[in-house]
Amino acid sequence: MIRIFGILAGLFFSLSVLWAFISGAIAVAPVLGEYGQFTEPMADKVFHEKHPPALHLQSDGPFGTWDLAQLQRGFQVYKEVCAACHSLKFVAFRDLEELGYDKGQVKTIAAGFQVPGVDPNTGEATTRPGMPTDYFPSPYPNEIAAKAANNNAVPPDLSLMAKARHGGPAYIHAILTGYGPEPEALKQQFPDFKVPSTGHYNKYFPSLAIAMPPPLTAEGQVSYAEGQPKPTIEQMSTDVSAFLEWTAEPKKVKRTQTGWPVLGFLLFATILAYLAKKQVWAALKPKKKHTA
């Protein structure tokens, strides 16, 4: 009985999904020439560069370590350029000690930022210089203010940016260096394509029009300390991408460095377990054939 019901139910589901398949196929049939494309391709489907060029950082891979000088340069770029619009709300000033700053330097850096506070006499909202325990403040008092100041596009928080996008730091680097005029081929192929007045053409951004104006526009926009590489746009973009890799996953190096001893121990223990298993099972192997 169950089998009869089962067969009926199975046929019901299979036939209805095949019905969906057939009706789909009928809809597709007229355009089967360009299989799978129901509508005119959009400019962003053709000209969006899905894969950012590779970015090699010292923190990459299972043996990576932080390049502290680079992280400090990247922090400098964040502080002098990005921080004007982007918050970094999950990072506290005290965390900067991991970049090689000492306690005094962290205090000075923190004091350079104004964080929201309360006037102790009147209770009114005000600002005060930051302390190492404070988190990076948002440049805007709230989301509405952020929208109002940026043509309705809220500059996203950057703390986790390197984990929140496919490609991570390489994507950030690609966006920062991907601005430029629209290519001629695009204008010819899609004469109707137009970057909105509030947008900027960027071949690595999915819609090709990003709301953020090019943040790094000139060599030397940030002046690096003596002995550091030349602050080209490429260099600054790489540095800030490395810095954001750190803000997104500050425990990354500790993680891989913990991983090796753990795996080493497990390998050792597993070999022992294998030998023990063999020993235990050896007793089951009848040897009569050989002795008889």
Binding site: G6, I7, A9, G10, L11, F13, S14, L15, V17, L18, A20, F21, G24, A25, V28, Y35, G36
Partner: peptide
């Protein structure tokens, strides 16, 4: 949810139910 994945999964779904129930 684009072609050819939808059509592939339709065929696979049909087989799935046929396999267990028929």
């Amino acid at each position: 949810a684009e072609e050819p994945y939808v059509m592939l999964s339709q065929l696979a779904t049909a087989y799935y139910f046929l396999h267990f129930l028929v």
